[in-house]
Structure formats: structure tokens, C-alpha cells
Design a protein around this nucleic acid. Sequence first.
DNA 1: AAGCGGCAGTGAAACGTTTCATCAAACGTC
DNA 2: GACGTTTGATGAAACGTTTCACTGCCGCTT
Lengths: 342, 342
Amino acid sequence: MTASIKEVARRAGVSLGTVSNVLNRPEKVTPENRERVLKAIAELGYVRNDSARQLRAGRSRTVAIVVLDGGNPFFTDVTRGAEETVEAAGSMLIVCNSGESPAREERLLEMLEQQRVQGLLITPVGTSSTARLERLSRHGIPVVLVDRGAGRGAFCSVSVNDVLGGQLAAEHLLRTGHRHIAFAGGPLTLPQVSDRHQGTTAALAEFAAENPPARLTVVDTANLTVAAGRKAAAELAAIAPGERPTAVFCANDLLALGVLQELITRGLRVPEDMAIVGYDDIEFAAAAAVPLSSVRQPRELLGRTAAQLLLEEVEDAGHQHRRTLFDPELVVRRSSEPSRPA
Amino acid sequence: MTASIKEVARRAGVSLGTVSNVLNRPEKVTPENRERVLKAIAELGYVRNDSARQLRAGRSRTVAIVVLDGGNPFFTDVTRGAEETVEAAGSMLIVCNSGESPAREERLLEMLEQQRVQGLLITPVGTSSTARLERLSRHGIPVVLVDRGAGRGAFCSVSVNDVLGGQLAAEHLLRTGHRHIAFAGGPLTLPQVSDRHQGTTAALAEFAAENPPARLTVVDTANLTVAAGRKAAAELAAIAPGERPTAVFCANDLLALGVLQELITRGLRVPEDMAIVGYDDIEFAAAAAVPLSSVRQPRELLGRTAAQLLLEEVEDAGHQHRRTLFDPELVVRRSSEPSRPA
DNA sequence: AAGCGGCAGTGAAACGTTTCATCAAACGTC
DNA sequence: GACGTTTGATGAAACGTTTCACTGCCGCTT
């Protein structure tokens, strides 16, 4: 269907190697020959065959990023950052979505390995893929963990201190007078979720050292979506007012937006009846029905840094793995403004 | 670095062809040989080389989708729909982002063509890429236009009637008493934008046939983002109250959310001082500070249908191009509830 | 004038698959 | 027990590149 280099050579009346030279080292070929080859290329509508190129070269020019949820603005922002960096290096970023499903993740990794991608940015669903990722790395495909610390020193990683984030959120709620807090998130097997939860309990423990202890209710959700948030809010709203937490810290903003919406629908006031703090500070958080307090992560920076680390490792094989950890930042908005000053 | 089929063959003590058979037609090979080959594969950590496979086969197992804005929930939903369908067919969907930049789009198309992707779903930035897309199609890479009608019959396309959408929005505003409406959107070279604008003017024209004419103010924006919306709102707010439109129809929801936020910040009330209608009905529209009226598009269905059409064309070369057009639906929420009944 | 270095261009080899014609062996039939 | 048929295994060819050792050729030096 499509013309090959051989036909270009024949039409231009030169050898195969000369055409290749025009394509790869144009300065090495005489101007008139270059001219003729380019003309032939244009006439035939020749397009380089990347498969053959890659086969010969042993490696490709694409970097892949595998995200947990392609619809979550957090990940699209991370992706944007990575895209920028990868593109500047002359490669192409392809975005894949595991949708928090280990099976799909597995399938994607399999296909990406077969494609011999240049490198891989990934937020793994769980720990089940660690073995496969290590194998990728061993096979010469660098892997950088995104939004997830590397367990042992096997990979580079770029993440944000989720424990600290959870702590910031919980401390804020305690400071503004809340004594019964809910943590909404799940599945708890996601390190992001469990770290944020851990930060919460840490803050509560610290608080209890000098005060009467505060209470924590955990609402486990199936995933981190708006729909899951609505469901969580329904559970919270069903609790008798006296026993109900007065604030909820949600493991991400989608969840928080769902919670907010459902609470309002059910006639509860935010923050008076229930304060809310989200996580990620996505663009929509500030635009919500009640502007959402949230723990901000440097999303694009995360993506940029991860891509840089990856490209570095692609260049330099004898590379030392590195872990980068950013600190999050609490952004207080109306959804958690003190209803009763501490 | 990575083992090849040849080494597997040597280790298993069989020929090269037998290994290939184990991989592709396992029933054709004797159980004990199959066993030995699989063992060798496991021991060597052999991974199929897709470049070689593709080179031989002439085609790949990946479908690409090129979207205008990877961060826009509209596109992530379309992508989700497409993903589902493509995955069910055993292929892999890779997501690329043109970011509304013709240059980046051009680059992506070049690389995707070199990769000999199986097919392409695309929302083109403008009309400048038509020639290249036609060439792709001619070279055996089917192209389906998404959220964009095919100009001539060159491609399959799946879109939503944007003119009708614009009309629905404008009629709604006229019916609820508005006599000076703003249209915010841009660039007007985007067919989506110009169609929605055209629908608006059509509705106004129809209205004027039986009523004193209503007024339309166009606010041209650089793109369709929240930031652009904020800027547009600033312009609207700067108009003297008597001269200011009483309602604004935004070409998409991101824009509308930005407008909403900025208006609130500036102390204008929605919908009392200015009603808003958005477009797309993304998930965040209902959760906004003032729940947003919006023109709903069947986003996942759009993606699914486009992917189906594409796969159909991949299968059947002698395929008739088809254009599918869905109708949008107006969803009225508080942002445009009649402040003064008609 | 002979020798030498540099420069363009050539053609074959190699990358890792899949396919296909060929071959050998085992089997069933008469 | 010979023959035809089926079955499984084999090895070479082909896909489209890039690379590299060679070959002429020209102009410069001695």
C-alpha cells in the first residue's frame, strides 16, 4: 500500500543507502542527489516505517504514561506536565488508562513492553505489578513511579508527601474545633489513600497527647469518583445528628465534590452541618457549590519532574535511582471555614 | 538485552518456526514441545517484539485518538467510550493531545502515520489537516472524525448537532425573557464554536420574525478553558449595567465555569444579574457554585460509536463512509432559572 | 607522475518476526 | 507389507530500515 525506501531509491535513480542518508544525515549527500531523492519522496508520498526503524534500532521514540483514572483532572494535569517535557526531547507521549483495574494495567504493561517503549511513567494500581515493572526495568525500559514512593530502591519515583497532606487536613479540622472527623476514601489498598489516612490518624494521635481524644470514622469507598462520593455522603447523612462527624476529609477532590453535592441535596449545610476538605485542589474545587478546601499538589511539576528523571535514565544507563518528594499545601476555602471558632 | 525467538528455540531444542507456532497456533504443536517452549520462554523472560511483528504483518494493533484538550472532561468521557470498544476488539487505544495547536497536531499525525496505527479517531483543530487525513485514509489508515461532521464524504464521522444545540440554548434564554444575550466562545475557526454560534443567531432570527428583535453580543475567546471564561466574564462585567447582556451562552462548560466564578467574584448574582448556559454537561456542571444549565452531549456514546465505525472500516476495506449525527439535549439548572418569568 | 587522503555512493548484512514450501515420520487401509 | 495420507517440525524468505565495509573518483601533495 505504502511506498518503501527501495521504491524511492529506484525512482530517484540512487541506491538504497543514499536515500537513508538523505533521511538521516542529509549533509553527507550531494545537493543534487538530495534534491532528486526528496522529489521522489514527495511524488510517492513515502512515509517512514517506524516498525522497521525500531526493529533495527532496538528502541522506540515513545514514552508511555499509565494513569489510574483518565478522567481525573489530577492525572490530566500531571500528564500535561510530562507531555511538555517528553515532547521537548523529541519523543512522543502516549497516555494509557488503567482505570484502577489491575487486570487492565497488566494488559497495558504487556503491550507496552512488547512495543519496547522508551520508558514508562506509571501510577501503579497496587503492588501486584511490582514484579513486572522490575522486569521492565531490567529489560532496559526505565520506569518512573508517579505519585507513589518507590518501595525499595528499584525505581526512580516522584511523589508528594501524602502522610503530611493527611496531617495538614486533619490538623486544620482539629484546630477549627472539630472533634469527630470522618475520613472518606478507598480502596485502602491504594497507597495514596492509606497514606492520607495514616496522616489523619497521626494528627489525631498528636492531638490526643494534650487534649481529650477526638474521634475518627472511616468511610471506605470503592474508588475515588464523584459517584463514590455521593454514596459516602449518603452514609454520613444517615447517621443520627448527635453521632455524626462534623467534618469529612476526602481522599481526593472528585470524592469531595460528590460528597458536597449529595449533602446539599439532602439539605445539610456545608460547612455548618459538615465541613469538607478535599485533596488535589483540582481546578474545579474552587468553582464548587461551596468552594472546596483542599490539599494542593504540584501536579504539572510532578509530571515534568517524572519525565525528566525518566529521560535522564534513558540517556544514562549507569544511573542512580532517585526519589523526589514534594510537600503539599493546604488551601482553605469556604467548605471548611470555622462555624464555631476554636 | 532481551531474548529473541531464536534463543528460545535453541534453549527449547526446537526450530524457530515451532516457537512461532506455539505463540500463534498452539494447537498445531505437540503438547510436549509446547511445554518445553513455554518453559524456555518463562526462563528467558522472553517478550514478543512488536516492531518485528508489525513489520512482518504490515499493520499494528493500536488505535489512536487525538483530542483537542486532554484536560477537558468532555474529551475524557469520549475517550472512555472509545477505549471500551477498542479494547473489546483486542486492540489498544493510545490517547494523544493536540492542545488545539495545529503544529502539534501535525507532529502527532506524522508520528502516528509512521507508526502505521490501525486507525485514527480525531477531532481536528481546524481544516488545515484535512489533506493529511485524506492521505492517511488513502494509505490504508481509516480515519473517523469525532465531534465534527465530515465536510465532504471523505471520512466517517460521528458528531452532535451543534447548530441545534446552540438553538436550544438560545431559545431557552429567549423564552425565559432575556432580550440581550451574549455568546462567549472561540476561536470561531473551531467548527464546534461557529456551529453553536450559528444556532444562536438562527434562534434569534426566528424569534425576531414574531417579536421585536433581541440583541446578541459576541465575546470572542482565545480558547475553551476556565481561564478564558474568567477573562470573558471580566469583559462582560465591565459593560455598564444597562447595556450589559442579561444572559450568556458559553460554547462549553469549562468556559461557563470560568465565567460563573469570575462573575461571583465580582459580586454579580447568577442568574439574577446574568444567567448562564454552558455546553457539554460535564460532570462538574451540576456541582458548580450555581448548578449550571448546559446542553448535554452523549459523550461516551460518541466515543463508542466512533470506535465501532473505525473498527468496521478496518475490517472491511470496501466500506461506505457514514456520518452519524446525534441530537443534544438541554438540561436546565439554577444558573438559568427565570429571574423574571416570561 | 605517482601516491595518498577524503568524499559520495553502493550493496549486503542484520534486526525479530511470520509464513510457506518442504520434509520426515507415523498412521490407517487394503 | 506397500502405499497414500495426515501430522508435526523445519529452515529459508520476506517485511523496511540502518549501518558499515568497500569501491571509485577527484584533487592535492610530494
